[in-house]
């Protein structure tokens, strides 16, 4: 059985972990990177964080919180040793539209002489997931999806099937927007011994609320 072992979330004023039942205020996304470093939510600094687009930032924030909630540690040793057999799948409303506009405006403003590679790399909706995969050492499947309906339940369904198909032993499912983001760690119940977990069905039911705040509230009420 596939279960949810960690849920991390962040919005413009708060962040939290659902299973740990932890919630804190923050002073804005600009200060959150150093705040996460100080609180060891980022176990080591995120490389090139300053050039990340906003969705890459919120993706990394909520992924770190979800991994912490699931009790999964990581280190930068993965570059030289074993990476984690975990995949990452994501969805969001507008893909990388904002980054597309920023990159192309910058190119036009330069007189069409030279585009900036640092902006171009964020013109793929999968790039924020790739930034998270690099930082957390996630070596499983990586893909961005957008759905016509039932966005979060569809995403979680794909993450579940990915584990069932043995594409990876665990999956991180991310819904990251510029203003808020949530991430779920999915694992096989047989692999987690006594770790606390939530059933996927209950999480899907709670996650399909109309607003982000209602969803966090419904998820926080799960036992």
């Amino acid at each position: 059985m596939i279960v949810v072992t960690g849920i991390g979330w962040v919005n413009h004023k708060e962040y939290g972990c659902i299973i740990e039942k932890d919630k804190k205020s923050h002073e804005g996304f600009n200060s959150l990177h150093s705040c996460f470093k100080n609180e060891s939510i980022f176990l080591y600094p995120v490389k090139n964080f300053g050039r990340f687009d906003m969705i890459s930032r919120t993706t990394c924030f909520c992924a770190a919180l979800a991994l912490k909630d699931a009790g999964i540690s990581y280190s930068n040793d993965h570059k030289h040793a074993h990476k984690r057999d975990m995949g990452i799948m994501g969805t969001n409303e507008e893909g990388c539209l904002e980054s597309n506009i920023n990159y192309y405006k910058d190119y036009i403003d330069s007189g069409r002489i030279l585009a900036r590679g640092n902006l171009f790399v964020y013109t793929l909706p999968s790039t924020p997931l790739a930034e998270a995969a690099i930082h957390f050492g996630l070596s499983g499947p990586l893909l961005h999806m957008s759905f016509k309906e039932n966005k979060l339940s569809s995403l979680l369904g794909f993450a579940k099937r990915s584990i069932i198909e043995k594409e990876a032993t665990a999956m991180l499912a991310v819904n990251a927007e510029e203003s808020d983001a949530i991430s779920f760690v999915l694992e096989n119940k047989d692999d987690i011994s006594n770790k606390r977990s939530l059933t996927l069905e209950n999480v899907i039911f709670a996650a399909e609320k109309s607003s982000f705040d209602e969803m966090i509230s419904a998820l926080s009420d799960l036992k």
Binding site: G87, G117, V121, T127, A130, I134, G137, S139, L142
Partner: peptide
């Protein structure tokens, strides 16, 4: 099929 990520470099 098999899908993986290098988790190494952005480009």
């Amino acid at each position: 099929w098999g899908l993986t990520n290098d988790a190494n470099h952005i480009t």
